[in-house]
């Protein structure tokens, strides 16, 4: 132990704020004589994106492996009342995913398809614009729209702002409804908003999002849309992809192949 008590207290108390400010440029922070550091195995990208191939995602057995994997990984409760549901990923009818195409003629079975929906991690997210505490924000490094459940005040402005219904609010304590609560990921408390985070906690450990890993049909492709050599970029070059409500200028980073 090389430091005396005084030094520790100084580091811990007001000194911490100064240390945080001083290390902001480096992006690292001094804490109690130690220092934070980026993860070694973290998967990195300039702009994370997902391509969902709706053709592959049509198993007759009504497969929901991706949704179950996601909800299991993140301690998402299973609330029976659909009005109070929490969902990070869910399937909905094509015309709900793309309401503007409701009356358009569509080829083949497209209209009958169930479409996997999740947070679009918009490049220009309205939810981030409206949040009064920056409890939700867009990570500059990789474009993920993040959530800070310590900070959220539960005003639900982001829920009103999201054009995709991707955000859920905890109308009551979610814990009694969590089927398999585990300690690897926190639960949420009542009164905060939650949503998909592109599994940023798994990316930090060098793993792909839970839904991508769980899909038996390999219908979900995850990668860096800013890297022309990524699988995502290649798919988007080769095939015509839809985004939800592109006319709103939110620039969703989830793409759908039909």
């Amino acid at each position: 132990m090389s430091m005396d008590r005084k030094t520790f207290l100084k580091l811990g108390g007001c000194g911490l704020a100064a240390a945080v400010a001083g290390n902001k440029l480096a992006g690292l922070v001094q804490i109690a004589g130690g220092q934070s550091a980026p993860g070694e195995k973290t998967l990195r990208a300039s702009r994370w994106a997902m391509v969902i191939d709706t053709r592959k995602c049509q198993r007759a057995d009504g497969c929901d492996a991706c949704i179950r994997a996601c909800h299991e990984a993140h301690n998402v409760p299973s609330i029976p009342d659909p009005r109070r549901e929490i969902k990070w990923a869910w399937k909905d009818r094509f015309e709900h995913a793309f309401p503007e195409l409701e009356t358009s003629p569509l080829p083949g079975d497209v209209r009958e398809r169930q479409v996997l929906l999740l947070c679009n991690h918009c490049a220009n997210p309205p939810c981030v614009r409206v949040c009064p505490t920056r409890a939700t924000w867009k990570r500059q490094s990789d474009g993920i729209v993040m959530m800070d459940w310590h900070r959220c005040i539960g005003c639900r402005y982001c829920v009103a702002a999201c054009p995709y219904g991707s955000r859920s609010f905890n109308w009551f304590d979610p814990r009694p409804y969590i089927r398999n609560m585990h300690a690897e990921y926190p639960t949420r408390t009542r009164g905060v908003v939650e949503k998909c985070t592109f599994c940023e906690e798994r990316l930090a450990e060098g793993r792909l999002p839970a839904c991508v890993e769980a899909c038996p049909e390999k219908a979900l492709v995850f990668g860096d849309a800013a890297d022309p050599n990524s699988e995502v970029s290649q798919l988007l070059r080769e095939q015509f992809a839809l985004r939800r409500k592109p006319e709103l200028g939110t620039e969703p980073q989830v793409f759908y192949l039909l």
């Binding site: 639900r156 859920s168 609010f169 109308w171 009551f172 009542r190 009164g191």
Partner: peptide, 14 residues
């Protein structure tokens, strides 16, 4: 209990 005592829901949040 939380805001669950109201009639609000995930679609009508205000």
């Amino acid at each position: 209990y939380g805001l669950g005592i109201t009639g609000l829901s995930r679609d009508v949040t205000w």
